[in-house]
Design a protein around this nucleic acid. Structure first.
Length: 290
DNA sequence: ATGCAGGCGCGCA
DNA sequence: TGCGCGCCTGCA
């Protein structure tokens, strides 16, 4: 199947909008094209996705049947309508943000890629994060040709372990170079084994383990669990979420002084086991309307 | 041009 | 435990 283009069409009525999915902050490797379609690389796949009304066309190079690849990656088995109904009943603020980001879905991304990507995201801006990840992929990933263009897979941990701290610095990672280097080493040596990590149920236990990796603090750990492990109950708190939670509920004059514990408590009480999804709607709404 | 961007790790009370 | 600070880099 490798090397040959596959096509898959799908009719979706709701809870699927490419701009919401790719611009809610969960992924870094999807580029919008002139025709409003998006092209991206994930695992060993290069995909172009075009949405026209309710018809969505997926095409590209996959190492498995494209339907399987798409259904898994785009989280087709999860009923977002049901989730949105539940969350909308919590309060009007959330209902409003859900309406705004109604097409958001949490992608099933590769855990390893998410770990490295979110270490890179620390104190960084999105264009630069994207550029760094592209350079890493071009330097250490595998080349895939599609429509006569070159694409590069995100490097495996073995591929990335070839990079020295100096190599990483040269690729523009800045002070995160040593975090990526050390974390890669720890994962290669199975000081943290990603396969066994995936089998752990308790999110607090997973977080505890992730926090032992350099460059991973509370926010990055929660992003990794939400985007790389589909843990819907975690609530990553970054500046935007702090901002929106303060504005909606806490109303402190100085948002930078808002206690993180207070936000955590609020999220748990209000959103419970769907806090992570609520976070995505709130984050997207606040950031897009800022 | 200085400040800032989707935090982390460190040192210090 | 909790807080303040410095940090690579690129871009406005």
């Amino acid at each position: 199947m490798n090397g040959k283009e596959q096509i898959y069409k799908l009719n979706i009525k709701e809870s699927f909008l490419l701009s919401h999915i790719f611009e809610c902050g969960q992924c870094f490797r999807w580029q919008k094209r002139e025709d409003e379609s998006y092209t991206g690389v994930f695992q060993n796949n290069v995909l172009n996705v075009k949405q026209e009304n309710e018809m969505i066309t997926f095409k590209g190079i996959c190492d498995k049947p494209i339907k399987e690849v798409v259904d898994d990656y785009f989280d087709m088995q999860t009923d977002y309508k049901d989730i949105k109904n539940k969350l909308s009943q919590i309060d009007n603020y959330l209902a409003q943000s859900i309406e705004y980001g109604s097409g958001i879905r949490i992608l099933n991304q590769d855990l390893w890629e998410v770990i490295i990507s979110f270490i890179i995201s620390a104190n960084n801006n999105i264009p630069r994060i994207q550029k760094i990840i592209e350079r890493l992929s071009k330097e250490y990933g595998n080349k895939i040709i599609y429509n006569e263009e070159e694409y590069f897979t995100f490097p495996t941990k073995e591929q990335l372990s070839k990079a020295s701290i100096e190599d990483l610095r040269r690729l523009g990672l800045g002070f995160r170079d040593k975090y990526v280097y050390e974390t890669t080493k720890k994962i290669i040596q199975k000081e943290v084994d990603l396969e066994s990590l995936k089998r752990i149920e308790d999110t607090n236990k997973i977080r505890e383990i992730l926090l032992t990796l350099p460059g991973i603090g509370p926010k990055v750990a929660d992003c990794i669990m939400l985007f790389g492990m589909h843990k819907f109950e975690v609530f990553p708190i970054d500046v935007w979420v702090r901002r929106v939670m303060n504005e909606l509920y806490i109303k402190n004059k100085d948002e930078t002084k808002v206690n993180k514990k207070e936000i955590e408590k609020l999220a748990k009480e209000k959103y419970a086991n769907l806090a992570g999804i609520a976070q995505q709607y709130l984050f997207y709404w606040k950031r897009e309307t800022a």
